[in-house]
């Protein structure tokens, strides 16, 4: 999602809120199972659920603490043919999940999805095995930046569960915001259990 699109979505959503048509749900601390995902995680603190405000593809939830500009937590259960990012127009190529993807291709699926959101030159590093809710998966770090030049860091964990892809991903500005929350996010990833 590029800056303009995000700004407009925020503006539109803001109008809805101002006119009393929408509220942002609070996700309480504790066990949380995202709709569409067959796993749950332990949240150490409450999060704001932006999924209905900034619509996401089926099976993808986006939470934030202080606003999408400062932290984004994705929890997803993606069916074959599904995507991680929603694109507003039909012309933009949309990375889709296939059941025959290798682990490397799953990482590329995430990275390509970030590029579709207009994150600049996203890169994955530190690929390593890690279970997600008992299923073998791949953990990796992400380095990218916004169009403004603000560096973003991220960490993600993907694993197949049956035909679906399960994903946990956290993104935040590299300056202060990523480091301030990554340990908590680490523990959250490790807490994932089958629902």
């Amino acid at each position: 999602m590029n800056t303009t699109r995000r700004g407009l979505l925020v503006a539109v959503a803001g109008g809805a809120v101002a006119s009393g048509c929408a509220t942002i749900p609070l996700v309480r601390a504790g066990a949380y199972q995202a709709k569409g995902a067959a796993f749950s995680v332990m949240l150490a603190r409450p999060w704001s659920d932006m999924t209905t405000t900034v619509p996401q593809p089926r099976g993808v939830r986006v939470l934030t603490l202080h606003g999408l500009q400062l932290n984004q937590l994705y929890l997803a259960g993606i069916a074959p043919g599904g995507s991680l990012m929603r694109v507003a127009d039909r012309d933009t190529p949309r990375p889709t999940y296939r059941t025959d993807m290798s682990e490397q291709e799953l990482v590329e699926f995430v990275i390509d999805s970030l590029a579709t959101m207009n994150f600049q030159d996203p890169q994955s590093t530190g690929l390593r095995p890690q279970n997600l809710a008992g299923a073998p998966g791949v953990r990796f770090e992400i380095n990218t930046r916004l169009e403004t030049g603000l560096n973003f860091s991220g960490t993600a964990l993907v694993a197949r569960s049956g035909d679906n892809l399960h994903l946990l991903m956290f993104l935040a500005p590299s300056e202060y915001y990523y480091g301030a929350f990554v340990q908590e996010v680490d523990a959250m990833f490790a807490s994932a259990t089958p629902a």
Partner: peptide, 16 residues
């Protein structure tokens, strides 16, 4: 980014 978040929060009151 933080300034944008502050402004956004005046429109979209985050419960957090």
């Amino acid at each position: 980014a933080v300034g944008g978040a502050i402004l956004s929060n005046r429109l979209l009151k985050l419960p957090t």
